[in-house]
């Protein structure tokens, strides 16, 4: 039994309003004791591995993108067994409503939500505006440890195909739209990593030919919430040139920033087929003989 869906005017315009909750909604749900019976679990997922410990939403649990969601050996996500163990340890059952929030306009929270979706977790939502908005509004934080009652999570095999693209899929995708969500400097090939971030070792700079450049943060308002449906349409239907029904692949550097865009395309604009290419530039920019376009032009479909 999932938790009641929030009704408000902004969310109602989106294709899947049930995928977002506002800070007001969450605060009221917490106030009403929503966390006591395991029907609702609040998850914080940040870039900085220590940020949760400096203060988090009371009763929330932490999931770390790197140590919890990535396989330790293979460049892949955890398997069904590890995911079931993780979810259960965090108090999450298969029918739990999970609300995820995090730093940097929910960049890592969207990534965690995408991984939950690989496992087909049905009711997983983002806190619109994330950690920064919650704090800016002066809402409660605590450093108390959360000790959830274990959840009951079945072993579910990951189903990558609907929302995850591999390099081979991208090569077969040419002719259909691609969205590059990295910074303009990374897109043109001027640099291979984010401005002000450490070099991650891509051997070539540039973008996948034909990809439209829409840096991920343009989908977020200054307060970290998603932009309105109208604004998102101007960005993705207008500027990027997508049309309803398109089969879209989004990518960035390792698939985290593009999860934020994937969420906007899939749930806010309602594109049925949107895949996140998590190999992204750290794979493509190092792969042998894949086509690359440099400069600000999108480039053409490789022959």
């Amino acid at each position: 039994m999932s938790y009641a869906v929030e009704q408000n005017e902004k969310f109602a315009a989106y294709a899947n309003p049930e995928r977002l909750v506002s800070t007001e909604w969450l605060a009221a749900a917490l106030e009403a004791g929503a966390l006591t019976d395991g029907k609702l679990v609040v998850v914080e997922s940040d870039e900085d591995v220590l940020l949760y410990e400096t203060g988090h939403i009371p009763g929330s649990v932490k999931i770390d993108w790197h140590t919890d969601l990535n396989d330790e050996v293979t460049r892949d996500y955890v398997n069904g067994e590890a995911f079931a163990a993780l979810a259960a340890a965090k108090g999450i059952s298969r029918d739990t409503t999970v609300v995820i929030y995090g730093d940097k306009s929910n960049w890592w929270a969207a990534y965690a939500l995408w991984v939950f979706t690989l496992f087909g977790h049905e009711d997983v939502r983002l806190l619109d505006g994330g950690r920064d908005k919650w704090i800016a509004e002066g809402r409660d934080l605590t450093t108390d440890r959360t000790a959830p009652a274990p959840g009951d999570y079945p072993l579910v095999e990951r189903n990558d195909a609907p929302i995850r693209a591999f390099k081979e899929d991208v090569l077969a995708h040419f002719g259909k739209p691609l969205i590059d969500v990295r910074s303009p400097e990374e897109y043109t090939g001027q640099r291979t990593h984010m401005p002000a971030y450490p070099e991650e070792g891509a051997l070539r700079g540039g973008h996948i030919p034909t990809a439209a450049s829409i840096p991920w943060a343009r989908a977020a308002a200054p307060d970290g919430t998603y932009r309105s449906r109208e604004e998102l349409e101007a960005l993705y239907l207008g500027e990027a040139g997508l049309t309803a029904g398109d089969d879209v692949v989004a990518y960035c550097r390792i698939g985290e920033r593009s999860s934020h865009t994937w969420f906007a395309l899939k749930y806010l604009l309602g594109f049925d087929t949107v895949r996140n290419y998590d190999g992204s530039w750290t794979e493509w920019g190092n792969a042998v003989r894949v086509p690359i376009a440099k400069g600000a032009e999108r480039g053409t479909v490789p022959a």
Binding site: D48, V49, L50, L51, E53, T54, D103
Partner: peptide
Amino acid sequence: PPEAPTTRG
């Protein structure tokens, strides 16, 4: 900044 505890640490 305080929102970067790993860097501060």
